[in-house]
Design a protein around this nucleic acid. Sequence first.
DNA 1: CTTAAATTTAAGAAAATCTTAAGAAATTTA
DNA 2: TAAATTTCTTAAGATTTTCTTAAATTTAAG
Lengths: 239, 239
Amino acid sequence: MDNLNEAGKLSILVVDDDKEIVNAISIYLENEGYRVYKAYDGFQALDIITSHDIKLILIDIMMPRLDGLSAVVKIREQKNIPIIILSAKSEDSDKILGLSIGADDYVTKPFNPMELVARVKSQLRRYLTLGDVNGTRKANVLKSGGLCFDLDSRTVTVDGEPVKLTATEMKIVELLLRHPGRVFPAEEIYERVWQEPAYNAENTVMVHIRRIREKIEINPREPKYLKVVWGIGYKIEKI
Amino acid sequence: MDNLNEAGKLSILVVDDDKEIVNAISIYLENEGYRVYKAYDGFQALDIITSHDIKLILIDIMMPRLDGLSAVVKIREQKNIPIIILSAKSEDSDKILGLSIGADDYVTKPFNPMELVARVKSQLRRYLTLGDVNGTRKANVLKSGGLCFDLDSRTVTVDGEPVKLTATEMKIVELLLRHPGRVFPAEEIYERVWQEPAYNAENTVMVHIRRIREKIEINPREPKYLKVVWGIGYKIEKI
DNA sequence: CTTAAATTTAAGAAAATCTTAAGAAATTTA
DNA sequence: TAAATTTCTTAAGATTTTCTTAAATTTAAG
């Protein structure tokens, strides 16, 4: 599988038996800076997703040979990437059918190109998190010893006991757990979690660290998980 | 009852008073590898399903002698297999009637053969799970504790007591129940339920959440089912 | 022992959610 | 078609939770 895509572009696969539609969609997506792959039936689609690093799929559900709904199911068996269904039908029952089968969104033809792009971005935003370079959502738990972070339910447990962290606290724990053993200066934690330049923000980070410890450590004064490295920063050990 | 069908093929019963339609459908289904039984009115249909191991029924609701809707009701009393209604009528009232009476899907004539096949496959996929050898479906309900959503009748009950939700409210509950434990940001709820990009829509979602809680929670201020995760979104617990 | 770094605490500020209500929109009924 | 009903959206204020700030305290390294 080629994981190297030109200039770091995200790859999108467009599947429809109508070549004109595929081309039209491709132009809009390429304009937005995506690399577009094209397929004209379900089998071609399956071929491409097994040989290329596709991040998102746009697929028509009414296609010859392997119909779209079946293809969606097969794709889901292989990869966990966002799937947006294209369809001429607009009835509610179809919407529900598509979504319950494992698609993430549903667009009816004729569609507004800008809306389509908006939905593509929305889906990619949802699936592509920083630490998740492959775009494939793996088993969604991060661990270090008894500390466990379930990314789907956004639940943190210590030795199986659920612990209630705030959103910011969770982001800090997530960052440290995604790079176990690595030491992060408070300044870097701030910049990565708050997504803005750190200016006199160390204290803020420290107070958060304190509160996280209060929740996940048995004795916050002798932390077992969230450790300090004097003069450098904080880390959670690789276990 | 013969449970042995040739070469392990799945048996489908097609019921319509128009023989041409029955034959046309049969060809498409046989092409897809199904064993097809034919009936030209409701009584014949009932005969066949009691003597053969039918996995799915396609039935017209406008038929002489025993009309289709009545047949559907009687079939449901006997067997719990997927039923797809065929009809020349496309009015909404019929759709609702057909589905509420226990049918699983609805196709209006004239129909696209590929679409019909797709729906047949979709229904079989939904009902024939590995552990479910008899072709009798699993209870089609989503649950979390005392909260229960019956997908067939689209009815919600709390501790057995029926609760009257609006269509939108039901879609929200369905989404959360289909992914128990997972936290959905208000924005994502909007996009998945309304099927359009969320723009300043969080408030709308919140008000709906509030009204759902009013209906399903004993004390809406301390929700037992529909919980908030501060800074992230809403969820219904996996129980 | 001194100093810089890290911890702890508490209170006010900020942000997110909740609640309510009124009017708009959609649906049903007459 | 109009009236009545139900459902949805919008907005604004109340409430709750979370975040930031700052100052006092403790800890580790040299």
